[in-house]
């Protein structure tokens, strides 16, 4: 497996762990609204992470073979974020909006922490 493939597998694993912790938090703590918001944000963030990994792989493989691809999926990711925010604003009784925003940033935190931890091990 290449360096990139091991990295994306690691990041997906950490996102799954995080989602599991958030589900436990929503199920067993009294802060249901906050944890549901975090969960919604994290699910959309995970989708964004998956899309970014897939598009990065597609673009670089196409570059190696001399083919062309259509974009890197920025619009899809922005639309997914917009959908999450609209859901959070529409169902404000169930989702805490600040928690949704924090949840949306989890995949970027995972990327950065994974990068720094992995770099420090070298």
């Amino acid at each position: 497996m290449s360096q990139y493939q091991t990295m994306i597998a690691r990041e997906r694993k950490w996102m799954f762990y995080l989602l599991a912790i958030l589900v436990l938090g929503a199920g067993f703590t009294p802060y249901l609204r906050i944890f549901l918001g975090l969960l919604l944000g994290s699910v959309v963030s995970f989708y964004n992470l998956y899309l970014l990994q897939k598009k990065t792989k597609d673009v670089t493989e196409a570059a190696g073979q001399g083919k062309s691809v259509r974009g890197i999926g920025t619009l899809s990711r922005l639309a997914a974020v917009a959908l999450a925010v609209v859901i959070a604003l529409r169902y404000e009784d169930y989702f805490h909006i600040i928690a949704v925003v924090i949840g949306l940033m989890t995949s970027y935190l995972v990327i950065m922490i994974d990068f720094f931890v992995h770099e420090s091990k070298k």
Binding site: S2, Q3, Y4, Q5, M7, I8, N48, L52, Q53, T56, K57, V59, T60, G64, I72, T74, R77, L78, V81, L104, M105, S107, Y108, I111, M112, F115
Partner: peptide, 20 residues
């Protein structure tokens, strides 16, 4: 390719935080 993919992935990820 493997190293460049990693750098591109992290770079694009960090750049896209601002529009999001």
């Amino acid at each position: 390719k493997g190293q460049l993919q990693t750098v591109m992935f992290i770079g694009v990820g960090l750049v896209e935080v601002m529009p999001i």
